[in-house]
């Protein structure tokens, strides 16, 4: 019962704030709406007994990433789009075809997951605990763990180089 209530609240929050992200005209409002979506997704993770992932979701996503978005929105200010129609309009049909295909195959996958013999409900375990995740990261997923550190290093160096170019463009060193 508890999981159903939590799922309902989180699903409504996720989709409601998600519609806000996609349809708000103002970039600032869209970014704040994204915070609502991310917190609702964190609630979903709690419903799925993944407290560590929920904590990381709040700290990294809602904390760090959205703040970075807000900084850039505040820095670039409110600028409009070019007048005239979308120059990529002719590609829209491919996008819509992809959307329809995604919906179709997704619906097939969901129906397939509910069909077949009913399996017993998963028991309550500590799969989502930090100890279990750390064990998985450092044993069977060690390569992903190391690749993660490389990805973060490359991103940090890339950000510094991009920012250096921007500072030099404004006459600084």
């Amino acid at each position: 019962m508890g999981e159903q209530v939590l799922f309902a609240v989180a699903a409504i929050g996720t989709l409601g704030f998600g519609v806000g992200v996609v349809f708000f005209k103002d970039a600032f409002r869209a970014a704040v709406s994204l915070i609502g979506t991310l917190l609702s997704v964190a609630l979903l993770f709690i419903a799925l007994l993944a407290p560590f992932a929920a904590a990381i979701q709040v700290i990294v996503y809602a904390g760090a990433i959205v703040v970075m978005f807000l900084f850039v929105i505040a820095y670039l200010g409110d600028r409009g789009v070019l007048p005239g129609p979308d120059r990529l309009d002719r590609w829209q049909v491919i996008g819509w075809l992809g959307l329809i295909g995604l919906g179709f195959f997704g619906a097939v996958a969901i129906l397939d997951s509910t069909a077949g013999p009913a399996r017993p409900a998963p028991s309550t375990t500590d799969v989502g605990s930090p100890a279990s995740l750390g064990d998985a990261f450092l044993s069977s997923h060690l390569l992903a763990f190391e690749a993660t550190s490389l990805v973060l290093l490359v991103a940090a160096v890339g950000a510094v180089i991009l920012a250096k170019g921007a500072v030099q463009g404004e006459g600084g060193r």
């Binding site: 799925l48 007994l49 993944a50 560590f52 992932a53 990381i56 979701q57 990294v60 996503y61 760090a64 990433i65 970075m68 978005f69 998963p122 028991s123 375990t125 799969v127 989502g128 279990s132 995740l133 064990d135 998985a136 990261f137 069977s140 997923h141 992903a144 993660t148 990805v151 973060l152 490359v154 991103a155 940090a156 890339g158 950000a159």
Partner: peptide, 25 residues
Amino acid sequence: SREWNDPSGQVFALVVMVVAAAEVV
């Protein structure tokens, strides 16, 4: 991950979060 009682799914999700952070930067 919850359905199969396997932490691998959560490991993938955490890696996706790291990639998302790098992508946003």
